Simulated scan of single mutants.
Amino acid sequence: MKLRGKQKRFLRAQANHLQPIFAVGKEGLTQNWLAQLDGALDRRELIKVNILQNADVDTDELKSFIEDNTDIQVVQTIGRVLVLFKVSANKDLRELSDRVARI
């Protein structure tokens, strides 16, 4: 699903109260980390990822790594925090993506 402006604005509003549940640290970006991120997004559809101070990557590298290797979309970048969205593979957990599709 390619997000339009109004849909991104809705998702940013929904992510406002969320705390980052994933972090990128000194180990950097690995396929195992990406698989865990993908699994978490299947359950939640919208999460925040924090880049720690000791990480060797910046936000642009993280954004391109995520978008090139998965179908996860970066909704917003706030400093060292990224807001990510993905439609859940489980139809029972698609509450947020159904609301986004109606916008």
Rank of each mutant, 00 (worst) to 15 (best):
T59G: 05
F10Y: 14
E45L: 07
Q53V: 07
V49G: 00
N16K: 14
L93P: 08
G79Y: 09
D92R: 08
L93V: 03
K8N: 00
L34T: 06
Q73D: 10
L82I: 03
V24P: 00
I21N: 07
A23Q: 13
F10S: 05
T77S: 01
Q19Y: 14
Q31M: 12
R43A: 11
Q31V: 12
K48S: 00
R9W: 05
V75D: 01
G5N: 10
L34H: 06
Q19L: 14
R43V: 02
L52T: 15
V87W: 05
S97A: 15
E61G: 02
H17A: 11
Q31L: 15
V49H: 01
R94Y: 06
N90V: 13
S88I: 10
N54H: 10
Q36L: 15
L52Q: 12
I72W: 10
G25C: 05
D38C: 03
F85H: 03
I21H: 07
N50F: 11
V75Q: 01
S88K: 09
Q73A: 12
Q31P: 09
L34D: 09
Q73G: 05
G39S: 13
D68R: 08
R43N: 07
I78E: 09
A35L: 13
V57Y: 08
H17E: 09
R44S: 08
K86T: 01
A35Q: 13
Q36P: 04
I51D: 01
M1F: 00
S88A: 13
R94P: 04
L37D: 00
K63T: 12
R80L: 04
R9S: 14
D98S: 06
D56W: 01
G79P: 09
E45D: 11
A101P: 02
Q31N: 15
L93H: 12
T59D: 11
N69Y: 11
R9P: 01
F85C: 05
M1K: 02
A35F: 05
I51C: 08
V81D: 02
L41W: 09
V75S: 00
V75P: 00
Q19M: 13
L46P: 02
I103Y: 05
L62T: 11
V57C: 12
A35I: 12
E45R: 06
I78Q: 11
L82Y: 03
V87T: 15
V74W: 03
K86Q: 13
A15V: 00
A40K: 12
R102W: 06
Q53A: 13
F85S: 02
K26I: 04
K2L: 10
I47R: 02
A89C: 06
Q7E: 12
E67R: 00
R9C: 05
D38L: 08
S97E: 11
V83T: 15
Q31H: 14
D58S: 10
R99V: 05
N69A: 13
R102M: 10
S64I: 01
H17G: 03
G79A: 11
N50S: 13
V49P: 02
F22T: 00
I21P: 02
K63S: 07
T30Y: 06
L52A: 15
K63E: 14
R44L: 08
K63G: 04
K63N: 06
E61K: 07
S97H: 08
F85V: 03
I103H: 08
N54F: 06
F10N: 06
R12S: 13
K26R: 13
G25M: 05
E95R: 14
H17L: 04
R80Y: 07
Q36N: 15
D38V: 04
A23L: 11
Q76R: 05
